[in-house]
Design a protein around this nucleic acid. Structure first.
Lengths: 162, 162
DNA sequence: GTAAATAAGGATATTCTTTATCCTTGATTG
DNA sequence: CAATCAAGGATAAAGAATATCCTTATTTAC
């Protein structure tokens, strides 16, 4: 059970978009080049973000993507779910229903106890991701990335932002 | 990102094995029939439990599986990881290393911040599963399952336990 | 107005994982 | 000695992830 690589891509792209000056857009091409990713396939991940309403888009030259809201209002969970979907990691196929001892027509009152426990773990995962804002990530990165690299990356992006 | 169906199977099978009297074994055939699962493939899941040391096995007629330790000492996490593996759900491919602005030979001091955050969420998921014992599941089931069904299922199992 | 650049998205292909099924081997029981 | 079992190897089918290619409509810059 492994998350799509697009999740990683989307998170890194959002981190870059978070540094974009107001009103500017960054294209798929620039984001793909910056991260060394296949442009066409990265585009699918960005489309997922767009469909989820997390980013705004603009067409034409100088078009591209920008965040739809401030980084402090954008959670990891939103980004992860936009790409990965909202489905739970544990799917209950209700195998207890195959119990040969069950009376015919017997009907469960509630979801399977196994599923409920697994879903609680899922929820703990989501709750953790819900508690991390994109701005938190940017804060960490700004401390960890050497100032020169931070600056040159910022300039690299600005040169390409429409 | 969805867990293998074998995880569900393994959890339900362990719940059944938890009710087995001391020293008795239950075969793959019986477990498959009870849950309506393909015997050969369920066998792979049970082999995973065996390899992880969570169950003991016995060969020959009256052979099969039994828990290797008391249900109160067996966690959901152990069962899930035995089948699903211990790999994290988020794999960091270190795409930051593709940043065209990076000086050559530049080397990261620590794992990517994005990965660290995602791994914390993974750990929250694991921690939740680590906190649930197989005996907790049995306790819930014993309250939820109608007494007659509980009893007839127990007898069904006993008839087939070697 | 026109050419270039863009997002959106449909169609297709490739690779990998999951989900099986079948068969052999060696051990155990009655 | 025949039946039953776990273990595990080999193989196949189905589905998901990972791409690539192409068309369309829109926007910008000139």
């Amino acid at each position: 059970m492994i998350l799509k690589s697009q999740v990683e891509w989307a998170l890194h792209c959002c981190a870059i978009l978070a540094g974009l000056p107001d009103g500017r857009y960054l294209s798929t091409k620039a984001l793909a080049e910056f991260h060394g990713l296949p442009k066409e396939y990265l585009s699918k991940a960005l489309q997922s973000l767009s469909q989820a309403g997390l980013v705004d888009t603009a067409l034409g030259p100088s078009g591209g993507y920008r965040l739809a809201k401030p980084p402090a209002d954008l959670t990891f969970l939103e980004i992860v779910e936009a790409v990965e979907g909202q489905q739970r990691t544990f799917v209950c196929t209700n195998i207890r229903a195959n119990n040969p001892c069950r009376p015919k027509g017997y009907c469960e009152s509630s979801p399977c106890a196994v599923a409920r426990i697994m879903w609680e773990a899922d929820e703990a995962w989501r709750e953790k991701l819900r508690g991390v804002k994109l701005s938190d990530l940017v804060g960490i990165l700004s401390k960890e990335i050497p100032p020169e690299l931070w600056k040159s990356s910022f300039e690299w992006v600005l040169e390409r932002a429409g």
